[in-house]
Structure formats: structure tokens, C-alpha cells
Design a protein around this nucleic acid. Sequence first.
RNA 1: GUGGGUGUAGCUCAAUUGGUUAGAGCGCUGGAUUGUGGCUCCAGAGGUUGUGGGUUCGAUUCCCAUCACUCACCCCA
Length: 433
Amino acid sequence: MKIPSVKGFHDVLPGESARWARLESTAREIFERYNFGEIRLPIVERSELFRRSVGETTDIVEKEMYTFSDRDGSDLTLRPEGTASAVRAYVEHAMQGVDPVTKLYYFGPMFRRERPQKGRLRQFSQIGAEVIGRDDPAVDAEVLVMLADLLRGFGIESAEIGVNTLGCAECRPGYREALVAWGESRLDERCADCQRRLRQNPMRLLDCKQPQCVGMRDEAPKMIDHACAACRNHFDRVLRLCDAEGVALTMQPYMVRGLDYYCRTAFEVVASGLGSQNAVGGGGRYDGLVQSLGGPAVAGIGFALGVERLALVLEAQGAAATTAVPEFFVAPLGEAAESAAFGLTHRLRVAGARVEMDSGSRSLKSQMRRAGKLDVPYVIILGEDEVAGGSITVRDMRARTDRRGIAPIDTDVETLRAALAAVATTAAAEERV
RNA sequence: GUGGGUGUAGCUCAAUUGGUUAGAGCGCUGGAUUGUGGCUCCAGAGGUUGUGGGUUCGAUUCCCAUCACUCACCCCA
């Protein structure tokens, strides 16, 4: 009886996981350059954490969380995003006392019970970063510049970073009113969803994709026009700093974000090759969040990138999934040779070589066939002759030549590699003569 | 949660208006005289046609249900 995987929960197979590993290692390298430190966060948190941070009325909290009651009755949830956990950890460990500026990055799976489709899974992975402690526009710019560095480092070609300001507690209410007034003006022309949104979350009117609503959007009031002087100056400064570093940002006056805690600078990364899920990342400032989770009154900003989506973009760009190739393939013939081969293989591996060994009960032909398919450059043949003579035969798969007795059975990697290199240079020299 | 599409071998797909032993390519296994791969050739293994009903002399084909996958809406990374 086969037991299939759970809907929306996918395996990442070796060829694909190599791509993930590259994404993570470049991210790690760039984060460290910007002096961020890695934080490893738990996957399960108290449900209350997300209700309070992400927002009670968001889709995530209302219908997408994997929430369960633990055996002791506590109300727990598989994290749907990373910022809440990072801020919780910041507060829990009083990180403001270590350094007024805390810079964290993390990798890991998130869980949202949505209907799966291309680029959208129920378990998905994020690469995220957070800066907590300063509301200086230079911090926003640092984060955006780093984001651009990351995208370039990943080799994402056509990514675009869209930005907007969402205002603050001072100016957003006024904007909200203006938005509601605008929305009501031609309410009957809007789609049913927007008529509902108008009351629940008027900001959402702006990113409706229905044709009739998109058509009206150009006349909508813009946050930037309603922003207070502080917000406007902040945003201007962010844009100026990024521009000076050659980081291209696209102003998107109608961009809104899905999570309640965002304010001021908000941004998202869009790329092609993802079907209708064209956002590979998003983030923004969350100045009130730390305090609302019981911490000091400090500001924060962060973003997250979707690993699956980044991988899809790279795949669409034609980057093939790569498979690692062993340096040596040990082909024993017969049981006696197998013992010797086993020892040799282990010795080579301990010394750091990537080695594959096949079974001595298989024919040399089939072992060669497999070695050829794996694209291994050298096959170490260990048959009766070799065992009797105490030395190995190495076949150079590319040159299609055998070297009998090139090294003793108990050789070490350095000796073997040196012998092969010597043979190669001699062969090259002979060819020239 | 709401729509559309698709379910046949490990993978990608065939199978005439419903017709008898459900095929091909790739992959896999073995072989083409002694212990040698990529190309070629030969052979073999592998399917309760997603599942359960129904119509029919007969269903991969038609109908219903169900499940799964997938794309889109929604939402977002």
C-alpha cells in the first residue's frame, strides 16, 4: 500500500536540492557581509503570536493556519511566516540590551493551508532577514540594497523591486478615509469582492485584479500624497540612498501588503516565470510590532524570499539542475576483490574524494556502463589480476585508456591523483611530439 | 473556499464510430565469445487503464460519483 505525500507538501529531490543549497549558501554569504547573524527559530509557536502580529482579519489567520491543540491544551500553530517568530525571539532574549541594532536572518519552512498551485505550496521555504532597533531611512536602504545584492547573487535576471510607502499611525487614517470616500463614489461599478473589501480592508481595493476595478485604480488617491512630512521625508531619503547605489526601484503607489504590521516603506520583488504567483519576495517596515509583542518601543524592517519561487524563476531562465559527479568509481570483480575495494573506497572517502563503488557480483560491463552514465572521470578496476599483483588499474573514461598498476591497492588519494596527473602530462607531451 | 483541465508502464504519451493478447519512445535489467562505458543491435521485466458504481454481449473509450494531480480565482513568499 503506497502512502502518498500530503497535498501541498512536496519532496525536493537531489537535483533540485542542489539548487536550493546554492541559493542558501549565496544568501548566507551576502547576509554575513552585511553583518547579519543567523537565527534558528522554532517551527511551532503559540497561536496568539500570529493572531496579534499578522492580524486577526488577514486571510492567513482567518483560514490558513495549521493550528492544533497540544496534549496539555495549549493552542499552537505551525508558523505561517518568520517575522513574528524573529520578533518574539528578540523580545524574549531582550536583544536590545546586546546592541541597539539587531540584524537577523533565517531559513526555513513556513506553513499555510491554501489551495496549492504553481509557486504556491502549503509548506514552503523562506529566506528572511530582519533589522530591529532603528527607524533610520538608511536602514531601509541598507535592506533594499542587500535585497538587490541577493537577487544578483542568485542570478535572477529580470527581478523588479517595487516600493511604496504605507504611511504611519499619523497619516494612514486620513488616507484610509480618502480611500473609502473614493471607493464609495462608484461602488456599484466594482466587483463583488471589492464591495466587501471596502468595509473590511479598503487598502485591498488597490490590488484587485478584476478588469473593471483595475480600470478605476488610476484615479484612486495615493498614499504618498497623503503621507505626513515625516513619512515623506523618510521615503525620499530611502529612495535617494538606493538610487545613489544604483539600485533600481519601481514606484508602485498602489502596492499594499497582506500583513497588518507593515507601515512606511513596503516593497515586493516580482519576477517572471512563476505563473500567476509572480512575487518572489516581499517585506517592509513594522515599527509598532515589537512593542505590541511586549518588547521595547523600537522599529523594525524585514523581508522574506520564497525559495521555491526563486528556484522556479531560475528554472524558467534555463538554469539546469545539476547533479554532483563522483571523482572515482571503484569497480570490483568478484568477492575477494570486493573486500579490497571496500577498504580502498573508504580510504579515498576519508581523504575527501567523492567516490562511488559498485558490487563485485556485477559484471564489469554493467559497472562500466553505470560509471559512464554517472560521468565519472576515473574507474578504478579491481579484479583477480589486480588483487594478485597488489596494484590497481585505472581507466581514464575520457581518454578511453587503461593504466595498469598505476598505484598500489593501499594507495592514498594524493599519490593516486599525482600519478594520474603525471600520466596526463606525459600523454600530452607525447601527443605534441 | 470557488471554477476549469487532466488521470493508461518508473517518465512522456498512443490505442480507429465502444470490439477480443492495452502499444511506443525514454529509463531499467541482461546479452552481442575471455575483464571495459557513451553509439548501434537483440531480448526481458514492468499496467487490477486513479478508485467505486452504472449502461452494454463487450468499456481505456459512454454516464454518475469519488479521490488525486494541475492551472486559475482568492491570497501571498
